Amino acid sequence: MKKHVVFFEVEGGTDKGLDGYRLDTLPMIESLKKRGWTAEVIFYSDERKDEIFERVVRGADAYVSRINPGNLKDEGAYFQLLRQLCEFDVKGIPHPDAMISYGTKDALVKLRDTPLVPEDTFAYYDIASFKINFPKSLKNGERVLKQNRGSTGEGIWRVQLTSDIGEVEEVPLNAMLRCTEAKDNHVEEHTLETFMNFCEQYIIGENGMLVDMPFLPRIKEDEIRLLMLHKTPVNIVHKKPTEGADAFSATLFSGAKYRYDAPEEWSALVCSFLDSLPVITEKLGGYDLPLIWTADFILDTDEQGHDRYILGEMNCSCVGFTSQLSLSENIADEIISILSEVEPVEQLINY
């Protein structure tokens, strides 16, 4: 074993400090060095792909990806490099296909036959299927459309039917809609036809798609983000959307209030999610769990009137922990454990 880890970053972007690095990358490198390992940051670019491949294969045991795919010119080329590295026995933390499986919105569709996701959750990969099926799903109540790309609520729309359409099998194209974007809770009025034409932009292009799922009104009570370190829960972020009739976004940009709790304070949710991990892993491709990842939950009510939490999305591309940089010590231990194929001696929390 070389005892060397490469951290991939990309130059530029809003997630960098004054030194050009992500604020949470160098602490992980320093924590690895304390444990007798070496580590370095390599800035990925398409032009240097072959050079980077040779350098990492020769010198590293593993890579840790700290790149938001949205900051890349060619996301596909980057993932191709990561796959090649994995084929040459460089450990992917995470594997590129795990990044895709856990990080894309259609993970929800793959999990819709579990208690985590409503059964009437759909994915549209082409414009034709979207325009045929969305008017039918909208007939059954308020919906949320989520684009595959974007962040901070961009391209996530709450869609309410405001026209009285009577008893029909699907919503007519001239019906009026009230559309609220999660980015900032702003409201737009459109006909169904106009809005679907607008949403075509989310489907075209590489990895374009839309997820269509029921709107859960209790999101106004809270959204819960579970921060995971591999298999271990680290903390809970309790998000309270701003007040307002249409407001539903739980992003900081939209004015939502955040509170940070220990996982013990949400033991029922946490234990239920941990019990679900084998099923999640199986349905999302069988890859190792990501190193640092999140799962967002929305409060709902089951048929017996009991509280339940619905999975809204997961994220594993480049989850930050700048408000808790001391976590770098635990992350370094976990990286070494993954590479040694030995479980950490100390877990953050025991359940």
Rank of each mutant, 00 (worst) to 15 (best):
R308S: 10
A60F: 00
T232N: 09
E243T: 13
L277W: 07
G76M: 10
A39V: 00
V237I: 15
E189L: 13
V345E: 15
L85P: 05
D74P: 06
A182M: 13
F198N: 10
R178Q: 11
S272D: 14
A175P: 01
I236G: 03
D24P: 04
S163M: 01
N197Q: 13
L216G: 11
E264P: 01
G255Y: 04
T194D: 15
T322W: 07
K131I: 10
A107P: 00
L277K: 03
V57R: 06
K2R: 07
L23D: 05
D97Q: 11
E181V: 12
T25A: 03
Y78E: 06
P278I: 04
E313T: 06
L82F: 03
K110C: 05
L32V: 07
V109M: 03
E329D: 15
P241K: 11
A39N: 01
A62I: 01
T191L: 07
Y202D: 09
Y260W: 05
A245W: 14
L138C: 08
D307F: 10
V10P: 02
K183D: 02
R48Q: 13
G286R: 00
P135N: 07
G70T: 03
M209D: 00
L216H: 11
D15R: 02
G205R: 04
D164C: 10
F297P: 11
W157K: 02
V5N: 07
K33H: 09
I219V: 15
P27D: 06
K240T: 15
I127N: 09
D24Q: 02
N140L: 13
D300R: 04
I349G: 05
I52P: 03
V10Q: 06
G305Y: 05
P115K: 02
L82A: 04
K136G: 00
L227V: 05
I338Y: 06
P69I: 09
M314F: 01
D89K: 14
V168H: 07
A62T: 01
